[in-house]
């Protein structure tokens, strides 16, 4: 069988099974570890990465393969997100949680959407602060990752000193201080 029909058959299989689990999509036993997931995904990539078929498939076929591949990528990511992490990393608002959250529960009922969007004021994003404040803020972020709460408080205060206007920084500080208060 040609590589072309192989990949098309695979893509149809993936797309046909709408409620397949991540492991089923990657074709590995349920409960497989991260290494197995990675190996399986690399195998899929070697066969089905859309870049490899750019010149040999029709536009519709390529779209089919891309969709199947993109779902396999989501399956791989889901399994990666479930890995247990030893370091406890707490995200403060707007800061990338360095590690995907552990098995984030997907709401069973679809979230309802508000009828009309409230226009968002600009100026909420974390990067809407002075560059100096941003440097302190990043340091606070690192301190948090180390679990060093007092260090984080100090850096956030420095950040606020360089950008007193930032509401975002103040709310971040309040959050961290609340966390400190909760600790013995």
């Amino acid at each position: 069988m040609s590589a072309r029909s192989d990949v098309l058959l695979w893509a149809q299989r993936v797309i046909g099974r709408k409620d397949a689990t991540a492991c089923q999509i990657l074709d590995i036993p349920a409960g497989s570890g991260l290494d197995a997931a990675q190996q399986a995904f690399h195998k899929i990539a070697r066969m089905a990465h859309p870049d490899l078929h750019r010149r040999t498939l029709t536009a519709d076929e390529l779209e089919l393969v891309t969709t199947a591949y993109a779902r396999a990528a989501a399956a791989y990511q889901e399994l990666r997100g479930q890995r247990t992490v030893t370091t406890r990393i707490r995200a403060i608002p707007g800061v990338p949680a360095a590690v995907p959250p552990t098995t984030q529960a997907i709401p069973t009922a679809p979230p309802s959407i508000k009828a009309i969007a409230v226009p968002e004021e600009p100026g909420h994003a974390p990067n809407k602060m002075g560059s100096k404040a941003l440097i302190y803020y990043r340091k606070a972020e690192l301190a948090l990752r180390r679990g060093d709460l007092p260090g984080a408080v100090l850096q956030l205060k420095m950040a606020i000193a360089s950008d007193p206007q930032s509401q975002f920084l103040r709310s971040a500080l309040a959050e961290v201080e609340a966390e400190v208060a909760r600790k013995p």
Binding site: R80, V95, A117
Partner: peptide, 30 residues
């Protein structure tokens, strides 16, 4: 996450006879 990647979600309306839905999208980790 590796790209290309695709995920879908199912949404519903929050009012009776709602004919228009607006979904605000954002980028960031919060």
């Amino acid at each position: 996450a590796p790209i290309p990647i695709e995920r879908s979600r199912v949404f519903t309306t929050s009012r009776d006879n709602q004919t228009r839905v607006e979904i605000d999208c954002c980028r960031g980790e919060s």
